[in-house]
Amino acid sequence: MKTVNIILGLLLISVLSSGSCVYGADVKVVFPKLKGYEIVKDYPVYIPDNLWDYINGGADAYLNYGFTDLHIAEYVKGENRIKVEVYHHKNNVYAYGMYALERSPDYQFIDLGIQGYAENSLVNFVKGPWYVKVSTYTEDKKTGDLILKLANNVEKGLEGRSKIPEVLGYFPKEEKILNSESFIADNYLGYSFLNEVYTSGYKHNDKPFVVFILSPKNIEKSEEIVENLLSKAKSSTVLKEGIVSVEDPYNGTILIKRIEKSIFGCMGNEDPDLFNNYINKMLGSMAKD
């Protein structure tokens, strides 16, 4: 179980580690110059108390993902306007979670920060605790190239990791659905006891499924979570290698396996051997790290 202890330590560090310890109006974001454009900063620094004023009901999700402050600048040249919104979250994991929540698999992904995507009139990316959106009304290639250049310069000025959150890096690469990794802050699968969950999508024999992992603060808490999940189940069956098949009334069949305080889960594929194989690969990756 030594390996597992290392893993759990890494999981905890991953969630707790922060790209910044300064929040609110005290945070300074330097907006890079763009030739020919004037930088206008007539927006307030939005904080959790007034984010609603800017994005209305959309604010709820951001607040859930540890939003701390938002810095906005507009680049103006005649009729052309480019808006840069820099959302600051409490750490890189939560920023990534928020980014992933708004990400569509249909976007054209680019290598920027941890990850980004570009369309004609927008470039979004995440880096460290920052989730950045660069957008404009003009939809032509020239403007598209310009906002991509600006996004690159904004990225260079932001401190923080350009690597995917550690735990998501432990998910096996084979059969993984591209850009499907995410971090769910709370109420995963609609249950209030499933929080801070890392997930990734997979496809085996053309059948999609999801693998997830969470690691609460101690074994007791982990046991409590499993008990909660079982208490909601229509039925549950112990399979092999400590894997339990849970018939959830809302989410269908969920395979779970608890190893010390970590809980591994799989939805959409009921093959315990396949699931165990994934768990072992994750444990292997964690042990190497």
């Binding site: 009901g57 959309g58 709820d60 999700a61 859930n64 929540l101 769910i184 109420n187 995963y188 699968l189 609609g190 809302y250 989410n251």
Partner: peptide, 14 residues
């Protein structure tokens, strides 16, 4: 139902 924060379709179905 204000769906704004829900990302689980099973919750909407429920």
């Amino acid at each position: 139902m204000g769906v704004m924060r829900a990302d689980n379709p099973n919750l909407v179905k429920a």
